[in-house]
């Protein structure tokens, strides 16, 4: 069953066509990798799906609902979370507070008038926080200020924030960018575990081919804004168009 579907998704910036009639169908439960050379339109594509950018043409359907013109907070409320390429966190707050903000959104919706209630007295919110911190193994660091965390922990926290929104679909923008080999390894393990435990659907934008071939069920290859290939890792690897696009780039 299709969870996310884009039809004819197009974004033009002036004369530049960043994303050109992309039809993307993500099945429930799969891990999809989106790859392509720099400037292929991967990030723009994700931004169109999440609602950060308004498409020039085309539609985005999530869980049988048209979400083309929704704001990011609305798409998140419908079950689509995003982890950012550079850890997008709240540096002067503690690890716990970072996750708690997302947990409030998940438990209470996009807006509440609870401005006179003690924020410690929401057991359901605290439960989500505990669960997510446990999932990314940051429970011991919960009272630390986030700015002081090692880079790998910040990225794991980033994933915990995305997960605390209790998504069905997790969009991950280069989750291992800038990580050491050990951090990369533990993040990949984490992604695989999450997939199993939470039954998530994952869309992954990634450059590291090793990771992609390990975790992805299917791969979509973008080049100059268009889909040039789609299929299982093996199918994509043998595709002459893909090799052409990557000529001199990453070896497949």
């Amino acid at each position: 069953m299709t969870l996310l579907q884009t039809e004819g998704l197009t974004k033009r910036f002036g004369g530049l066509v960043a994303v050109d009639h992309v039809d993307l169908g993500i099945e429930r439960g799969e891990t999809r990798a989106i790859i392509g050379p720099n400037g292929a339109g991967k990030s723009t594509c994700i931004n169109l799906i999440t609602g950060l950018l308004e498409p020039t043409e085309g539609t985005v359907t999530f869980d049988s609902e048209d979400i083309t013109h929704l704001e990011p907070y609305e798409t998140v409320q419908r079950g689509m979370a995003k982890s950012f390429q550079t850890a997008s966190i709240f540096p002067s707050m503690t690890v716990e507070e970072n996750v708690k903000i997302a947990a409030f959104a998940a438990e209470h919706g996009s807006f509440q008038l609870n401005f006179l209630r003690d924020r410690e007295k929401f057991p359901a919110v605290n439960a989500v926080v505990d669960e997510m911190l446990g999932a990314v193994q940051l429970s011991d660091s919960r009272d630390l200020e986030v700015g002081s965390l090692p880079y790998g922990d910040k990225r794991r926290l980033e994933i915990a924030i995305a997960l605390a929104a209790e998504p069905e679909l997790l969009l991950m923008d280069e989750p291992t960018a800038g990580m050491s080999p050990e951090e990369t390894q533990s993040t990949v393990d984490l992604v695989e575990d999450l997939q199993e435990e939470l039954g998530l659907t994952i869309v992954l934008v990634e450059h590291d081919m090793e990771i992609i071939f390990r975790v992805a069920d299917r791969i979509t290859v973008l080049n100059r804004g268009s889909v040039i290939a789609e299929g299982s890792p093996d199918e994509v690897q043998g595709d002459p168009q893909v090799q052409e696009a990557y000529l001199g780039g990453v070896e497949l």
Partner: peptide, 21 residues
């Protein structure tokens, strides 16, 4: 209240608050 946390979060990183929903 939750507002104290959410308003500070908006002050620190508005886009992230949008992206937690």
């Amino acid at each position: 209240s939750p507002y104290g946390l959410i308003l500070s979060a908006i002050g620190e990183n508005e886009q992230r608050v949008d992206f937690v929903g």
